[in-house]
């Protein structure tokens, strides 16, 4: 069990497991996510990585930023690949050919490699019950190939394959709620996190590593290139996503939903949208309906989440 207190002073004494010299863009949210995830634990970790920004920028030619054993094989199969590694570990430990050093297994994937092309492989690995943690760093579009829409792209966003045009003003559909879909696999642990709330994120990773079986954490990871925002605002936006309830922080542990961070005051979704060029057209005269629809969606989902959490809270009260 990881016992280092969750205080930055203490955590900072550990060695980084993800090195500088990686080639992610300045101000990218993904390396912050990776660093916080790996810093949360002192278990030995082996990771797989779906093709994407993180992968191409962290391991290129003879340079790797990874200080843990790491494997990338393709785009749609980070979960299947790590399940093979994990199966080999179990096999060799069971046969007494290697020691059980409580190795933890992580798969990292972006939203494209997780929500879309890697969805089947992820679903399969979760159902099979591998002892693994899948981390989706969700930047809400295919950023590596140049900002194409994914099923994680929110309603209204301007991307290169759903550009805000005269007839179609950005992405017409809402995003897929992958965290809930993963929870519907009845895995022991599914959660949503944000690098702006580093302590909540690290607590979730720690909790996940103490649970045997498949775990899933969906982590918002701002991309200033794709979101058309500033290079310094990844953390600010990831906090605003939480404060507006656009990206609520919650966990579903053995079927029980709990909101882990409740914003003191729920801010309007426009606070999250307005700093991002991908939503600029939504603020143009005549597009007020888009803002309304975005707000309605956030409100509805937040209400639903609160009801779910409340239902479990009531249950707990009753049994006490």
């Amino acid at each position: 069990m990881t016992t280092i207190p969750l205080r930055l002073k203490e955590i900072s004494r550990q060695e980084d497991r993800f090195a500088y010299g990686h080639r992610m863009c300045a101000g990218c949210g993904a390396p912050i996510v990776v660093k916080q995830v790996l810093m949360a634990t002192d278990y030995p970790v082996i990771a797989s990585n779906a093709t994407g920004c993180l992968e191409v920028s962290s391991c290129i030619s003879e340079y790797t930023a990874w200080k843990i054993p790491w494997i990338h094989s393709a785009f749609e199969n980070a979960a299947a690949t790590i399940s093979g590694v994990e199966a080999m570990y179990r096999s060799l430990v069971r046969q007494g050919r290697i020691d059980d050093r409580q190795v933890k297994f992580i798969a990292f994937g972006g939203d494209g490699g997780t929500y879309d092309i890697g969805f089947q492989s992820l679903s399969g690995a979760m159902e099979r019950g591998h002892d693994m943690l899948y981390i989706c760093y969700d930047n809400e579009a295919y950023m590596n190939t140049g900002i194409q829409r994914s099923s994680a792209t929110p309603f209204g966003a301007n991307t290169t394959t759903c550009p805000a045009g005269d007839v179609i003003p950005g992405k017409p559909q809402n995003r897929k709620d992958l965290t809930k879909i993963m929870a519907a696999h009845n895995i022991p642990y599914a959660a949503q996190a944000s690098p702006g709330h580093w302590m909540d994120l690290m607590k979730k990773v720690r909790k996940a590593f103490e649970i045997k079986g498949p775990k899933f954490i969906n982590i918002i990871a701002p991309c200033n290139r794709g979101w058309r925002s500033r290079t310094d605002d990844a953390i600010m936006l990831s906090k605003l996503a939480v404060d507006t309830c656009y990206w609520p922080l919650y966990e579903i542990e053995n079927g029980v939903t709990r909101i882990t961070v409740r914003p003191r005051e729920k801010k309007p979704v426009t606070d999250f949208l307005k700093g991002q060029g991908r939503f600029k057209h939504m603020f143009a005269p005549g597009n007020e309906w888009m803002i309304e629809r975005a707000q309605e969606y956030v409100d509805r989902e937040w209400e639903r989440l609160q009801k779910e959490a409340a239902c479990w809270a009531e249950d707990e009260e009753k049994t006490e």
């Binding site: 199969n77 299947a80 690949t81 399940s83 093979g84 080999m88 089947q120």
Partner: peptide
């Protein structure tokens, strides 16, 4: 696994392991 693509992916992970 849930597909041959995942079968070979898992084999790759396992062999690299």
């Amino acid at each position: 696994v849930e597909s041959e693509h995942s079968a070979m992916s898992a084999c790759i992970g396992a062999a690299a392991a």
